[in-house]
Write a protein that binds this DNA or RNA. Structure first.
Lengths: 215, 215
DNA sequence: CAAAATTAATCAATCGTTTGATTAATTTAA
DNA sequence: TTAAATTAATCAAACGATTGATTAATTTTG
């Protein structure tokens, strides 16, 4: 039925998302994806037109939820700028970990220099997220909550970069942290809270004016 | 002669390094590399055995200088732990920027889940660098210079992650920072000093005990 | 039945690699 | 020193395999 068709397309997208992020766009073959998804190879083209179409479909499926996240942030004007940043870190850390294979895919393609039409799309998507965070930080400076000489753009780079280091190089991060950060349970119980606590402590002492140190 | 042969192999490696980091391992074809290098396609196999052999040769050429960097660090016991970290940031920021295309290649391959023999090699190489920095930080805690509850592994992730964000997604970083960080001159005059200053300020307030705030 | 979904078979193109032949450089032999 | 023998470097051409994509036939569905 219609339901089954949507489910099947969604199933293909699930598999494609994982295979793409594991092997990269070029490393992932359509036979591999269709094989793991348990569908005929021609179905990929039937549904998505082409390999690149499938790739784009994986992205399109995520974009909406991506923008939902951003919309609900920065709305509440009753809380302090630092509280906003803290909640951004919370939400972002949660997302990151639950969508790690998509996140990986995202930055993997951003680091390739060709396929400009696609990377433009990714670029725009990421910039929306980046600017939202930046705006939040700038507000903190404007209202005197944050140090005026804070390098906000670098702060953004640190939040995204620290997260990416975990997501994009999980093997390296695992042997560094001493536990397998690909394990779902460990992610939930250890990595998430640790990442949140660390980023908050790190940025608090960097951003906040000294007279604001009221914990 | 012998000189020319070495130069030619080196020239191929130069080109391969750039093409690989631009297109990824799978995206870069041997025809493309040999074409840009201006040599016959068969020469790649003649010199390096295979595409993967060429890829490994690109790495091998860099490893030695990578380890030289680490060796000269942490030797001087007369300076404080924080001074060591500062000089690590300096050296690392310099390297990073000058070898950005290799650095990109490095982390690009680390984010792919297959080719385990190769990624093992990269993994080992990076871990050496990571552990050296970590040891340095741990010393700072042991001698009471750094806060005892500092999350050192996360600090490593921040240093590497912030740098990677610049190197691996230069387009995103450029439109965020407002200038083209692929431009050699801008890298030297703006990105380098900015990255150094930021990382030092950020980590200083996070790592150092308050009674050490003498600067 | 007609439309949509699914399949197996096939397509041209490109992949990394290998081949046999040719040229250039070096070494050996007389 | 010269000629012969050997080695190294380079090339165009072709290899089999795999790629993404398409076709035409078949099955399923409404």
């Amino acid at each position: 039925m219609d339901k089954d068709k949507i489910d099947k397309k969604d199933h293909i997208l699930d598999v494609a998302e994982r295979v793409f992020s594991d092997m990269g766009f070029d490393g992932a073959s359509t036979r591999m994806i269709s094989g793991e998804a348990g569908v005929n190879m021609a179905m990929l083209n039937y549904y998505f037109g082409s390999k690149e179409g499938l790739f784009l479909a994986v992205f399109d499926r995520k974009i909406s939820s991506f923008q939902d996240l951003l919309h609900n942030l920065g709305i509440d004007d009753t809380i302090s700028s630092w509280a906003k940043v803290e909640s951004y870190i919370d939400i972002y850390s949660n997302r990151v970990v639950n969508n790690n294979c998509f996140q990986k895919l995202l930055y993997q393609e951003m680091s390739i220099n060709r396929r400009t039409d696609l990377s433009d799309k990714i670029h725009a998507m990421l910039m929306t997220s980046v600017l939202e965070l930046y705006k939040m930080l700038q507000e903190g400076i404007d209202n005197g909550e944050f140090k005026a000489d804070s390098d906000l753009q670098m702060v953004v780079a640190t939040i995204y970069g620290t997260k990416n280091f975990m997501i994009n190089t999980p093997l390296l991060a695992s042997s560094m942290l001493g536990y397998d950060i690909l394990d779902e349970k460990i992610i939930e119980e250890k990595l998430k809270p640790r990442l949140k606590k660390y980023l908050k402590t790190l940025l608090k002492s960097y951003l906040l004016n000294d007279n604001e140190h009221t914990n």
